[in-house]
């Protein structure tokens, strides 16, 4: 299948691998985030992992959902999806690790900045991440959407795992951005 007709359903199916704890695709709203976090918290109670891991999963999910809420772009006109469409999956691997995957549309102009930022964060040692975290925390700037630019730094700092990502082209200017985070 070519990149241009890559299908949302196939991406979603790929994301839903392992033992799925929670999965969603559709419009993202503040209320949806509240409800999803409630359900995930309830489901995590039944998991046998340490509280420390459960807290980390919840934390990463909070950041990921905020990122989706603030930074998703609308789907291409040809695709019949809501303007606030995004997807996310929390699943458990064969080992004791968990995976959080998110997907949202993004316009081409933002890709390079995003790639550079993730690659930079992935390249840093724990000590460097902590220093960067404090530097960004302590600068007064907020982006126009209220994000502090800290989310991904803090996710990697806490999970100590690198972020993996992919961009699928959906025509000229539209891409689908997939982010995977392992929590173990």
């Amino acid at each position: 299948m070519s990149e241009t007709n890559f299908n949302i359903k196939i991406i979603y199916d790929q994301m839903n691998d392992g033992k799925v704890i929670f999965t969603y695709k559709g419009d993202i709203s503040s209320d949806l985030i509240t409800d999803a976090l409630n359900i995930v918290e309830e489901k995590l109670r039944n998991e046998k992992s340490k509280n420390k891991i459960k807290r980390r999963i919840y934390y990463v999910l909070v950041e990921c959902l905020q990122n989706l809420y603030h930074h998703k772009d609308k789907p291409p006109d040809l695709i019949n999806l809501g303007n606030n469409f995004a997807m996310f999956v929390l699943s458990k691997g064969n080992d004791s690790s968990y995976k959080i995957s998110t997907g949202n549309f993004i316009t081409k102009d933002k890709i390079q900045i995003l790639k550079d930022r993730i690659d930079q964060i992935n390249s840093l040692s724990a000590k460097e991440l902590k220093a960067l975290y404090k530097l960004v925390l302590n600068n007064q700037e907020f982006s126009e959407k209220g994000g502090g630019g800290l989310g991904m730094i803090d996710i990697v700092k806490r999970t100590k795992n690198k972020l993996s990502y992919k961009f699928h082209n959906f025509g000229n200017n539209d891409y689908f951005y997939m982010l995977n985070i392992k929590v173990d």
Partner: peptide, 12 residues
Amino acid sequence: EYFNTSSSKCIL
């Protein structure tokens, strides 16, 4: 119990 990174700047 939890705070997100946008709160973390406000808490600072």
